[in-house]
Computed example of a mutant assay.
Amino acid sequence: MPLAVIDPNEPFQDDYRRVIQELIPALESGLGNNLHSIYLYGSVARKCAVPGKSNLDIIIVTRRKPDARFQTLLSTIKWRFRKAFPFITELSFQFSLVQEILAIESVITWGFLLKHCCVCVSGDDLSSRYGEFEPSWEIAKFWNMDVAQWLKRYRKIIAQSTNREEQVKHQIVIAKKLLRSSYSLVMHKDKGWYDDPITCGQRFLDYYPDKTVEIERLGILLSGRYIPKRSVIGVLDSYGSWLVKAYEKTEFRIG
Rank of each mutant, 00 (worst) to 15 (best):
K65Q: 10
W110Y: 03
K245H: 04
G192L: 05
F95A: 05
R18D: 14
Q94M: 09
Y154P: 10
G255Y: 09
C48I: 08
R180Q: 04
S127C: 01
T212F: 07
A148D: 11
I254W: 08
E134H: 02
P228Y: 09
D195W: 10
N33D: 14
K189D: 08
A4D: 02
D7C: 01
G42L: 00
P2R: 14
S161F: 13
G123T: 07
N163I: 02
T76N: 11
G201Q: 03
N9M: 13
G123I: 01
E216L: 14
E10T: 13
W79Y: 15
R69E: 09
W143T: 00
E166I: 12
R153S: 10
Q149W: 15
K47Y: 02
Y16K: 09
G131I: 01
V244F: 12
F252T: 10
R253L: 15
G219P: 01
V98G: 13
S106R: 11
I198H: 09
I198N: 01
L3R: 02
G234F: 06
K152Q: 10
Q171R: 00
R155C: 10
G240C: 10
S241Q: 13
T109K: 00
P11A: 11
N55Q: 11
S241V: 14
C200N: 02
D146Y: 01
R82Q: 14
P66C: 05
D67F: 02
V44A: 05
W110D: 06
K156E: 15
